[in-house]
Amino acid sequence: MNSTFVLIVLLFLLVVLLGFVFWPGKGIVPRMLLARKEKSRAHLEDVLKHAYDCQYRSVACTVESIAGILQTSIGNASQLVTRLESMGLLERDGSALHLTSDGTSYALRIIRIHRLWERYLADETSVREADWHRYAERQEHLLSPADANALAARLSNPQVDPHGDPIPTATGEIPIVPGRLLTALEEGEFGRVVHIEDEPPEIYAQLVAEGLYPGLQLQMIQRRPDYVRFEAEGEEVLLATPLARQVSVTLIPEERRKRGPFATLTAVESGRAVVVTAISRACRGQQRRRIMDLGIVPGTRVTPELDSLTGNPRAYLVRGTLVALRKEQTDQIFVEPDAGVA
């Protein structure tokens, strides 16, 4: 009697345990299988992305370069290539690999999600710039095309990611970004930064630290074989040629040039009225919207009124309202003296 009871309990526990391990969708084994499948899909997608990138930069895509990018063995990489070939996404041409048209549109879909996600992180969240790329690398394999379209709609269909790379449209179109390398800008010419290469991350971080961002207006002062010197937002920047090669610019026609001098709102002394000339493009998304919602747009008269204990934040009189702003924001607002008062 007693041993039967124990047996029943043991059998019941066994059934529960088996359910825990094998339950479809929720059990440990199905989850592990799913995770493995997703990981291998992520690898395949990374290969397609790399192949597209090679095509874009007109360099050869090989099994070796794939192994390098994925940090895996040559054998593994060639296995992945064989699978992609059998799926009709990749073609072999000698040692070089090419995307088929199906492969290209698949790759563009992944790139679209990646860049949209970076845009989302930059505009809508407070995730640090250094983490954008890493988070997007993970997210690009998880979002469905429908989710991506919904996200794009929410962000009001942005055209470029925060590094200036164009975001492919839902139909897989991607424009050729106009522009040339910063090192090709002639002395005295005005250019606007359209793209900053985000890989390798260390170099990208250096460029960001120098204050470069897509949309920045600059004027070339001096161009030498080993460095370039240019003026941006009232400051002179010196960049070694390898770094400058990571930056693309377009020429700015005379009439669209922003007027200098570039004094920031932070530097204005208390009680002195100034007029906003521009808001830096480095101020993006929500932050930019909030500043503009307060009525701070080019042409607005602003007067610093009140200093706090440390001088940060300061309160400014904008359109009859007193608004407190931190230095981090006023550093991004460019002004000129108010002609009507001075």
């Binding site: 969240t125 407070s126 995730v127 640090r128 710039e129 101020c283 929500q286 932050q287 909030r290 500043i291 307060l294 009140l306 934040p313 309160a315 309202t321 007193l322 608004v323 407190a324 702003l325 931190r326 981090e328 924001q329």
Partner: peptide
Amino acid sequence: GEASAFSLELP
């Protein structure tokens, strides 16, 4: 993460 834009209306 990064500090968000701080704006405070002093009515």
